[in-house]
């Protein structure tokens, strides 16, 4: 009861605007110069967020803007507008994506206000959230989880490992409908991508 009352007394903690994060955020070139990027995220002067691990090796030639890294939503599904159930699957993470993904449920972010929920089985899931680099034994698990999901379904690649393999390995062999770069992506960029994927505001 104590917890309940105190919870009420603290008021609403959910935020509309989130504080800026420097790393990871959209990078822009602020100086001329040669950069030795460990993941080839810089090719012909173009910065590719899908390859960037935000290691700061390119600093100060490239510098962070503080703007949340933009996710690519290739396909959204209007039928998930009111409720969007996610099943996360870790195919070989460092734990960072797992934790940032968990934090979209924190009171500051509160995913449920957008009708986003987690489920404990892919059989009830609308979207599969894939995190990490591909590891041999998880390949079959990933395929089983995908097969177990009902149609329509979305695949969300979360974090640079799942998108391009990052610095540690190869990405999982699955086509992503939503691609969220970042190492790890911030809860803000995850939340924005999810809301867009469910055709929300």
């Amino acid at each position: 009861m104590n917890w309940f009352l105190r919870g009420i007394r603290r008021g609403i903690l959910t935020e509309k605007e989130f504080p800026q994060v420097q790393w990871p955020s959209e990078l822009h070139r602020s100086k001329e110069g040669e950069v030795k990027c460990p993941t080839d995220a810089l090719k012909e002067d173009r910065w590719d967020p899908n390859r960037c691990i935000f290691c700061r090796a390119c600093e100060p030639i490239l510098s962070p803007t503080g703007r949340s890294v933009q996710a690519q939503v290739k396909r959204s599904e209007p039928s998930f507008r009111r409720s969007f159930y996610l099943y996360p699957i870790d195919v070989g993470t460092c734990g960072g994506c797992n934790l940032e993904f968990r934090l979209i449920a924190s009171p500051q972010h509160d995913m449920t206000r957008f009708g986003i929920f987690l489920t404990n089985t892919p059989r009830h899931a609308d979207a599969l959230v894939v995190m990490g680099v591909m590891t041999p034994k998880m390949e079959e698990v990933l395929r089983r989880a995908y097969d177990a999901m009902p149609e329509p379904k979305l695949v969300i690649l979360l974090g640079v490992c799942a998108v391009s393999g990052g610095i540690l390995g190869m990405p999982p062999d699955i086509r992503g409908d939503v691609v969220i770069p970042g190492c790890p992506p911030t809860p803000e960029s995850i939340l924005r991508a999810l809301v867009e994927a469910k055709s929300g505001e």
Partner: peptide, 19 residues
């Protein structure tokens, strides 16, 4: 979870990255 997020923000402000 609220406190975890608060710590992450404090780390981000101190060191530029939440982790």
């Amino acid at each position: 979870l609220y406190y975890v997020e608060e710590v992450n923000r404090a780390i981000s402000r101190s060191c530029g990255h939440r982790y």
